[in-house]
Structure formats: C-alpha cells, structure tokens
C-alpha cells in the first residue's frame, strides 16, 4: 500500500508540477507514472536459478502504466524472468536478464508492469 505523502514527495523531487501528482487533495490524485519501477520484489531471481560469476549492474528500466495507481490501495506484485539474452563485445560476453514485475489491484486488474534489466559481465576464463 502506498502512502499519499510519500508519493507527492516522490513526484515533487522528480520535478513534477502537475497537481494530480503533487497535491494529495487533488480529486484525481495518483502516483507518478514511473512509480512501478521503484517497487522491488523480495525475491528477484527464480529459486534455484544458476549464479553467473561476474559484475552485475543495473542496465535499464522500463515501465508501462495501464491504470492510475492510487495511495491506500493494496497492490499485488508478481515477478517473472521475462527475457535472457547475451551480447559479445571486445571485453567478452555480457548476459542480460530482464525481470518483469506486474502490479494488480484487489480486483485483479493490471495497473502496470516494470522491467528491470540486469547485465552481468562474465569473468574471463583463466
């Protein structure tokens, strides 16, 4: 459940000026459209997923907003491994994992999805 004041602070610090994101008393008050990427699943990788040796970094985030997310509403997030692919460059192979989290309201309607891309640069074999 998201707190109205926290959402307003989130929006204002990002530079939002639209009252529907910054004023909690606005009749259409809602979370800023990128809020879904800030919500972290407790378990990121699937249970039993193999570990890849290397340096992991956040490569990017995508967020799709389908319906407004309002404060005070219980939200359920479901995460899955959405994509895995590799790129090979001069410095070796990089493995990209895309983890998608889907958010639903209590009626089961999807509110948003958010992808987090993690890249792991494989350690060169000695």
């Amino acid at each position: 459940m998201l707190d109205a004041e926290d959402l307003a602070a989130y929006a204002a610090t990002c530079g939002e000026l639209a009252p529907r994101y910054t004023q909690t008393s606005h009749p259409d008050y809602q979370a800023p459209p990128t809020i879904a990427t800030s919500l972290s699943p407790g378990q990121r990788m699937p249970i039993g997923f193999p570990k890849i040796a290397g340096l992991g970094m956040d490569a990017g985030k995508a967020v799709c907003s389908m319906k407004p997310i309002r404060p005070g509403v219980t939200i359920t997030g479901k995460s899955h491994m959405h994509d895995i692919y590799t790129k090979t460059g001069r410095s070796g192979r990089m493995v990209f994992f895309v983890i998608r989290m889907e958010l639903f309201d209590p009626q089961g309607d999807q509110l948003a999805w958010a992808d987090t891309s993690v890249v792991i640069r494989e350690k060169p074999q000695s």
């Binding site: 610090t13 990002c14 990128t34």
Partner: peptide, 15 residues
C-alpha cells in the same frame, strides 16, 4: 537512483 532519473523524464514530459 536510476528510478529518479526515470522520474525526471516523465516530469519533463508533463511540464
């Protein structure tokens, strides 16, 4: 944070 940079982009559009 990356999520804040993303928030900047959305805020810019709304401005």
């Amino acid at each position: 944070p990356g999520i804040m940079s993303q928030g900047f982009l959305a805020a810019m559009i709304h401005r």
